[in-house]
Computed example of a mutant assay.
Amino acid sequence: MDVLSDAIAAMRAGRPHSGRRDKYAPWGMRIEDSEGAGFHVVLRGSAWLIPAVGEPVALGPGDVVFLAHGRGYALASGLDVEPEVVRMNPDGSPPPEPPSPARESTAAPDTVMLCGAYWLDRSRAHPLLSELPEVVHLPARVGTHRSLRAAVELLGAELAEPQPGSDTIVSSLLDTLLLYILRAWWQGQAHTGGHPTGWAAALADPAVAAALQAIHAAPDRPWTVEELGAHGGLSRAAFSRRFTALVGRPPLTYLTWWRMTTAGRLLREDDLPLRLVAQRTGYTSEFAFAKAFKREYGVAPGQYRRKAS
């Protein structure tokens, strides 16, 4: 898997949820703090996004917003509208739309949105997602983010007219849409004309990106700094300096962190014997793996698995 896909897989928990929302002005809804991340796509009309931190954002047709950090926010037809609190179900799914007198009439909704939510395990948040801004706003512009727009259109069609197999299709499209949103954001950061920083710079740097890809493709391999630097055509010292500056930690420190993150996911989602979990994360003995895991998580692997089940 590539780095972006891995980062999502490491944090995702449960099934994503989505729905189409037909809103009649005046309307407003407040999403409270949660462990989830949400997106909204305006298909028709307009809306105001009011984040927990920062200025309100005006949204128009085709605009996409993604809120990664689980902090509360509001959406409304106007800044003067008092939003009603929307309490998510325990599995992260939204409640049904409340009844609206306007909905009983023949009038078309003022705003139509696609809304989605992803439940995340934030205990091992990948820095690639942690450094995202409070609001990722992708305005609609002709000729941009074509793959993202195609995924939105497909998702909207499935939600508007469910067919046999729609449950699986919608779940897959939600995963695809999330990757397209993040890809569009990171690519935008790398091509703004300035100097990208953080993970936008790391993914745009050929040497660092090649090393990250190697680590994520084979976390069980006994990598050395020299071998990782060779993937990008750099000497050991030059590579180590560049990797540390862009990723925020030295190469082998990141390797250990990713191995432990991978181990945690395997223990949560799979029933592999600890011996195989150790092998898949680069440890030659179950004892060495258990010692490293407890140092990272504060509990033994078996105890961690029991708590997660």
Results as ranks from 00 to 15, higher is better:
residue 12 R to T: 04
residue 308 A to R: 08
residue 148 L to D: 09
residue 306 R to G: 01
residue 197 T to S: 14
residue 156 G to K: 09
residue 291 K to G: 04
residue 74 A to V: 03
residue 181 I to S: 03
residue 244 T to S: 15
residue 239 F to M: 00
residue 250 P to V: 02
residue 158 E to Q: 15
residue 102 A to L: 13
residue 218 A to V: 07
residue 247 V to G: 14
residue 285 S to Y: 05
residue 155 L to T: 08
residue 242 R to G: 07
residue 48 W to V: 14
residue 239 F to K: 00
residue 294 K to I: 03
residue 142 V to M: 06
residue 250 P to W: 00
residue 232 G to R: 03
residue 41 V to A: 03
residue 26 P to V: 06
residue 141 R to S: 03
residue 132 L to H: 09
residue 58 A to F: 15
residue 284 T to A: 12
residue 44 R to I: 01
residue 46 S to L: 00
residue 5 S to K: 15
residue 52 A to D: 00
residue 251 P to C: 07
residue 161 E to R: 12
residue 117 A to R: 15
residue 228 L to C: 00
residue 110 D to W: 07
residue 265 R to H: 05
residue 103 R to F: 13
residue 7 A to D: 01
residue 94 P to G: 03
residue 49 L to S: 06
residue 96 P to W: 08
residue 45 G to W: 00
residue 145 H to D: 12
residue 112 V to A: 14
residue 246 L to Y: 02
residue 122 R to M: 14
residue 28 G to P: 01
residue 182 L to K: 05
residue 206 P to I: 08
residue 190 A to C: 00
residue 9 A to W: 03
residue 2 D to F: 11
residue 85 V to D: 08
residue 226 E to P: 02
residue 33 D to R: 12
residue 253 T to F: 05
residue 56 P to N: 02
residue 179 L to R: 12
residue 164 P to D: 09
residue 28 G to F: 09
residue 37 A to V: 05
residue 148 L to V: 14
residue 111 T to P: 06
residue 274 L to G: 04
residue 149 R to T: 13
residue 102 A to N: 10
residue 269 E to A: 13
residue 138 L to M: 04
